[in-house]
């Protein structure tokens, strides 16, 4: 009774389609005509078609920008600042840092497309400091397009991770730091002995959320690059959308979709273990 409405909506619109995705992945189907069984062909193609496999690799590279960098930078910031005390400035800081996370990712995509464009702020800044030679159309550049998409993700994640880690570090018992100092620990030793273990949970939460965002990115890439130049920024999310609606390869799209879902679980699993209370 209490649970039924939630469970029904969830079953009809999540579990059942998930089952269908798994099923479709073993068929060759254009979405309209009759489907023919395809065995493991679609699954094999994920590893043999460079375009598909490349999209998976790109998603992993995005983890560096969406997860690794924001978490590390957030940790450094947190250990330098220690805690956000109450106060107007600190509240303001917390709110402002949080803003990127609450905006529609589509808008972030548009904002950064403008930032990275030929006339955008990034190039303007480079010109201002005399690095004219480095200016380029970042999102259209083979070397820099993927990192540039990464920067968008970094922007989305950084504030959130920082605020979360700051609030976590504020909860660490100050006496632990006192004790470490009495033992003669330097700043670095203190970081590894007290801060890092104390923030396990927060780190795990940050890493989980941002990793999902990286692996399942769609909005930002679809707006900023559509996977280009070449296949340089193609990610599974955009690939699934195209396979389904443009190429009408429903089976292939479903195989990639299920693979992506499994991949997310596989990557999240160890992160969750790290965050577990012992």
């Amino acid at each position: 009774m209490w649970v039924a409405p939630a469970l029904i909506m969830y079953s009809v619109f999540v579990l059942y389609p998930l089952g269908q995705s798994v099923q479709f992945s073993f068929y060759k189907w254009d979405g309209i005509g009759p489907a023919t069984p395809a065995g493991l062909d679609n699954w094999r193609a994920i590893f043999t078609e460079p375009e598909l496999f490349g999209s998976v690799i790109n998603a992993f590279i995005l983890i560096i920008f969406y997860t690794a960098l924001p978490v590390s930078l957030g940790l450094v910031t947190a250990s330098l600042i220690r805690e956000l005390r109450v106060g107007t400035f600190n509240t303001a800081a917390r709110v402002v840092l949080f803003i990127p996370q609450v905006l529609p990712p589509v808008a972030a995509g548009i904002a950064w497309t403008w930032m990275f464009s030929t006339e955008g702020l990034v190039n303007q800044a480079l010109r201002a400091v005399g690095l004219e030679s480095l200016t380029r159309a970042w999102l259209g550049d083979f070397t820099f397009a993927l990192p540039a998409v990464g920067v968008i993700g970094f922007w989305l994640s950084l504030g959130f991770c920082t605020v979360l880690l700051l609030s976590g570090i504020g909860k660490i018992d100050p006496s632990l730091y006192e004790a470490a100092r009495l033992d003669g620990a330097g700043r670095i030793a203190e970081f590894f002995a007290v801060t890092l273990p104390g923030l396990r949970q927060e780190i795990a939460v940050c890493a989980t959320i941002t990793t999902i965002a990286a692996l399942a990115s769609f909005d930002v890439v679809q707006i900023a690059t559509q996977g280009g130049p070449g296949y340089q920024t193609m990610v599974p999310g955009v690939e699934i959308y195209r396979l389904t609606f443009l190429e009408q390869r429903i089976g292939q799209a479903s195989a990639l979709a299920v693979f992506l879902a499994a991949l997310v679980l596989l990557v999240i699993w160890p992160i969750q273990r790290i965050g577990r209370h012992e």
């Binding site: 959308y241 299920v258 992506l260």
Partner: peptide
Amino acid sequence: ALLLVGLTLPFEALITPLYYN
């Protein structure tokens, strides 16, 4: 347990069948 399955599920994994349903 069922809900846990959905917690990390990317929307893209469902979009194709959702469309047909």
